[in-house]
């Protein structure tokens, strides 16, 4: 079993998630996993591989192709004592679960006067990288930042993925846990067994003094690559990984902007109504007169994503695009 092996020094994002599930299921028998093909198949992106063999079909439940039911039933189990982790195969399919997430899970604790709570996690993955097309590639995190009552996280590294998944499972609120299909094979430091990351805390992935770049999920790595590129030009970039989408840790972002005087938000989601708009609005409200240049965002244009890796690459901001946007910011 994975969890009893001596931890390797590095671990993939996928392995980190799997270990978090193993450890939490071992520690707490109220934790169950449910979704489409999470059992024998091991999950569409192989995250739940081995769970069925270890924990059995009373704790690893293959459901019919019924996304609305998966989230709604996870909520029902959570309300009466379970701590379910539901898997929705693609973020795009979350559209089928909106009532359960938005009207039910997010509202229940407050609406019922605090009598009920929803300690549940909905794991999804989103994003480009496989030419998966218009209905399998969208980044929809901003929708859920607009729903009070939900917590939304989107880790970028194996350590954060593990730490945030463990925190999400232990949290008494509904957490939408957003993975990225381009991250599963990415390696990073193994944080070890008892590693948690608090929900609601952003992380400075690279300190710098000239400009603040805010990103999350896979875009963090693109931003870090851009920062390395610019280091050779003498531009010192600070990269903030939001890690939690809702509620936003604006204190970390604003504190960084106060030091650097420049802000760029980079996201894979399309531009209009994206999280970049909210972050820049808050920066404008709080940092008037303190910024050396107007804050900027760089995002995928408002297009329907084609099922074509070449076109995909042409549309989503890459290292060069981010580096170029940073150069413009620093020059202005």
């Amino acid at each position: 079993m994975i969890s009893t092996l001596t931890p390797p020094r590095t671990v993939t994002y996928r392995e980190a998630l799997r270990e978090a599930l193993f450890e939490e299921m071992e520690a707490d028998d109220r934790v169950i996993v449910m979704g489409e093909d999470v059992g024998k198949y091991g999950g569409a992106y192989a995250v739940s591989k081995g769970l069925l063999e270890r924990f059995g079909d009373r704790r690893v439940i293959d459901t019919p192709m019924s996304e609305a039911l998966i989230v709604g039933a996870a909520l029902g189990a959570a309300v009466v004592g379970g701590r379910p982790v539901a898997e929705i195969m693609y973020m795009d399919f979350v559209t089928l679960t909106m009532d359960a997430l938005v009207n039910q899970a997010a509202k229940l604790h407050f609406m019922f006067g605090g009598q009920l709570s929803a300690p549940m996690v909905v794991r999804v993955q989103q994003g480009v990288g496989r030419g998966a097309g218009a209905q399998h590639s969208q980044s929809l995190e901003a929708w859920f930042a607009h729903v009070p009552g939900l917590k939304v996280v989107a880790p970028s590294t194996p350590a954060d993925a593990k730490g945030l998944l463990k925190s999400s499972i232990r949290d008494d609120d509904p957490v939408l846990f957003i993975e990225h299909k381009g991250l599963y094979a990415r390696k990073g430091t193994d944080p070890g067994r008892e590693h948690t990351v608090p929900i609601g805390v952003a992380d400075v992935k690279r300190p710098g003094v000239d400009v603040t770049v805010v990103a999350w999920s896979n875009m963090v790595h693109t931003a870090l690559d851009a920062a390395e590129l610019l280091a050779d030009d003498g531009i010192d970039v600070e990269v903030i990984d939001l890690r939690t989408i809702a509620p936003l840790d604006m204190q970390t972002v604003l504190a960084s902007c106060r030091r650097t005087g420049r802000l760029l938000v980079a996201h894979e989601a399309c531009q209009t109504g994206g999280l970049g708009a909210e972050i820049i609005a808050q920066a404008a409200e709080h940092l008037h007169g303190l910024l050396h240049a107007p804050p900027r965002r760089i995002a995928t244009p408002d297009v329907v994503l084609p099922a074509n890796t070449t076109l995909e690459r042409a549309l989503v901001p890459d290292t060069d695009a981010i580096a170029s946007a940073i150069r413009d910011l620093v020059r202005s």
Binding site: L75, G76, A77, V80
Partner: peptide, 16 residues
């Protein structure tokens, strides 16, 4: 909206 919630409660009850 509550039918799957009831179903999930029944699932938990059955599992336990």
């Amino acid at each position: 909206g509550h039918i799957p919630i009831a179903t999930g409660a029944a699932l938990w009850t059955a599992l336990r």
